[in-house]
Simulated assay, not measured.
Amino acid sequence: MPELPNELDGLSESIEVIDKQIVELLAQRAELTTKVGEYKSKSGSPIYVAEAEASIITSRKSEAKRQGVSPVLIEDLMRRIMRESYHTKSTEFLCTNPDIKKIVVV
């Protein structure tokens, strides 16, 4: 296998650094969404709010367009990231207000 030119090595190293930053940012986001889940659980707020999700996706797609990134890619990524957040929040926290004593299921 031929040796890679130094420029290509540098580019590959830069990509690796960015990939690690993406993982770090996802970890930070997960910490924040955990806090959101705790707050929503205590306040009895719903974990999933369709309008908020739609607004976030629209905003991120617009930002992607401005940055020259595929809005389709960003929408896919955001939906996957949010789905993971909802899963974490819904399995770790109550979705009801703890002050409510009785719930009627119809």
Rank of each mutant, 00 (worst) to 15 (best):
P2K: 14
P2G: 11
P2Y: 06
L4S: 12
N6H: 06
D9P: 00
D9H: 13
D9K: 15
D9N: 14
G10E: 08
G10I: 02
E13N: 09
S14C: 03
S14H: 08
I15V: 11
I15G: 06
I15C: 05
E16V: 00
I18C: 07
D19K: 15
K20V: 00
V23Y: 06
V23D: 10
E24M: 07
L25Y: 09
L26V: 01
L26N: 09
L26M: 07
R29N: 11
R29V: 03
R29M: 08
E31L: 05
L32P: 02
T33K: 12
T34V: 02
K35V: 00
V36Y: 04
E38W: 00
E38Y: 01
E38T: 05
Y39L: 09
Y39P: 01
K40W: 00
S41F: 01
G44C: 03
G44Q: 06
S45N: 12
P46H: 07
I47W: 05
Y48K: 12
Y48A: 09
V49C: 01
A50L: 06
E51A: 15
E53Q: 15
A54F: 04
S55K: 11
S55L: 02
S55N: 08
I56H: 10
T58L: 01
S59R: 11
S59G: 05
R60P: 01
R60T: 05
K61D: 02
K61I: 01
S62N: 14
E63N: 07
K65S: 05
R66V: 05
G68T: 08
G68R: 10
G68I: 07
G68N: 10
V69Q: 13
S70H: 04
S70Y: 01
S70G: 03
P71C: 01
P71T: 04
P71K: 09
L73M: 10
L73N: 12
I74V: 10
I74F: 03
E75R: 06
D76T: 14
L77M: 15
R79I: 00
R79P: 00
R80K: 10
R80V: 05
R80S: 06
I81V: 14
I81N: 12
M82G: 04
E84G: 07
E84V: 05
S85C: 08
S85V: 04
H87S: 15
T88V: 01
K89C: 06
T91W: 04
E92L: 11
E92W: 13
L94M: 12
C95T: 14
C95E: 14
C95Y: 12
T96F: 03
N97G: 04
N97Y: 04
P98K: 14
P98R: 14
P98I: 06
D99P: 00
D99K: 13
K101A: 04
K101Q: 10
I103N: 07
I103K: 07
V104R: 10
V105Q: 08
V105A: 02
V106N: 13
V106R: 11
V106P: 10
